[in-house]
Design a binder for these strands. Structure first.
Lengths: 190, 190, 190, 190
DNA sequence: TATGAATGAGTATTCATTCAT
DNA sequence: GATGAATGAATACTCATTCAT
């Protein structure tokens, strides 16, 4: 009967946190996040029990946003190469479109405040990507390795690519394309 | 302020900082570092003007240690592939041998407290690596890209490889070897 | 604001407050009291304007409960000694039966948040006790003192007795009896 | 070689705490205590790890001061009655001389923040008091009870006496004397 | 130079109370 | 009236840095 909790407010806090953390690191005060989100200091804690909880939920939210973009329009029936390209482009495009989210995700990934649980959930295989990786690597030099390793290479190489695009936005397309070729060669050639 | 007396103390602080930051993140108190280094709280500040200075010098020290290992015994006259393998192995071996240093370097790399200057110095081309990269990429899919991009791929892929070795130390050699093949295919194949 | 609807709810809050304050002290949050009483946080404030009001009303309620038990079946026509014993037993029995109430009353008695008014009302003479004290002390060493002083001794000695009974419940009766003899000697002997 | 910790400062904090807690209860802010003690907010925590530690140490300090006064000039060879009178007077005089300390001690005695350990140490028998109580009660109505119970009666009755002296300081002596007679009768008469 | 006590700005979190539903 | 989300002042404690010894 009382005022219901607002999903909007929760999202506003998450977005504000992304901005603030991107600017000042995860040691930025919760008060600043609250102000930027347009809520009172105390309100932040009705949506997130503690700063650590906020950090973990933000991490999962960012990971989830990235996945969504990788899966959006995923061509399940195309060749492994085309599916790989789709996933690659999704990753790179997400990173380019969300520089703050990417920065924060990078910080959270190496933070001691993200629990093992969050990391596990955040890195779990998803959609058809796992399967695509398996197909792609089947005859390549990595054929003996775990798909997760190939997935890690995808992330690592995409990150490197994004950071170069950020420095030279005008060459975004060449970087994205060349990065993909490098990735594809890395995992599929023998 | 003149050069501080004891180079030993300076190193002790740097080592202590590595351990403490690896355990608790870079927000760990300087007092704890001082204690672990066996010096008084105030003494830390005669060796490093401020915590930020310590952070930056630690970053450069770590980067420098990594380079040393990549260059140690570098086969300047061998084939590009062999030189690449040497650099790759140097990176991976350093990471495996210095898990704390690697963890801290990862944190510092994404920290707002590391200055642009430090990042530039820390990522500058060195030894014969730049040249090796140029040769290796000459005919590959990355031929149009900057060598720095290829260097970034080396780091990124080596990091991914190290983190998998950390999870499965017994398969260190397969990971290191397969990782290198993937890297080599990524940059040299067309 | 008119009289709140439910006397039951008011009592539930008072009881919950007793439990919670006994466990955590009077600095326990009102939210916890509300939860234990089975009402919403805000509802508590329709029954008690503020936490201070709650504290004061609880104090008076507890005092009142104690009095009731001291007066229940009070033998107005018996000897002073018997009347004194009745009052004494009433006090001790109440304390033993209501350990939480006793604990909270002790805290409130020394709290700055209980007003002078409440203290006055809570310590006012009542029933035939005042008169009994007067008779009992008439020939004793305290004959020159105020009855209130004797009343204070009764409370003090009964409290001490109760706390020993709490530690050794099996010797409740000896403690209660010996305590009364000590009290009676204290006030009646010359 | 650095500035040594100052016993004076520690005492200043303890005294300030006594004043502030007497005025506002133990929920008074540590910042106010620090200010009143003339030290920085943080300094309080170099002398007392936490507010709870301060509370416990203050409790023990107050108890210890009370004991000192009870034992000062204690007539070990006098009659039990004279020794009892000395202890009684010591208690009452301490209470009258330290109204703030007494008030705070009363609050701490019923506080959940005082550990069992502190309570045990603070109530341990001391000097020749225990022995005196034993002698005095040997033939009285309490002969079967523990000396600790008699000690508790002494405290309880002395407290009641002090509080009446506080209301009527001019009748301090009569109250003190009559209170003692009452106490003596309570424990020694059969 | 080395030490560690002193400083006080900074911060996560709590909580009585208000008020939209 | 009942609910519980919203508020923001209040507060214990931390910590980089300074400075007396």
């Amino acid at each position: 009967m009382a005022r219901p909790r607002s999903e909007d407010k929760r999202n506003a806090i998450l977005e504000a946190a992304t901005k603030v953390f991107a600017e000042q690191g995860t040691s930025a005060p919760t008060a600043r996040i609250a102000r930027m989100a347009g809520v009172a200091e105390g309100t932040l804690f009705t949506y997130f029990e503690s700063k650590d909880v906020l950090l973990n939920e933000l991490y999962l939210t960012l990971k989830s946003g990235l996945r969504e973009q990788m899966l959006e329009g995923y061509p399940h029936r195309a060749s492994a190469r085309e599916r790989a390209r789709h996933a690659w482009n999704g990753y790179v495009d997400w990173g380019v479109a969300h520089p703050e989210g990417r920065k924060v995700m990078a910080q959270l990934t190496v933070s001691e405040r993200i629990t093992e649980d969050s990391k596990t959930v955040g890195s779990a295989p998803f959609g058809g990507v796992q399967e695509m990786l398996r197909e792609a690597m089947a005859k390549g030099v990595l054929r003996e390795m775990a798909p997760a390793f190939v997935g890690a290479l995808l992330s690592a190489m995409a990150e490197a690519t994004i950071s170069f695009i950020e420095r030279e936005p005008k060459r975004a397309e060449p970087y994205r394309a060349a990065g993909f070729e490098a990735f594809w060669n890395a995992i599929s050639k023998s």
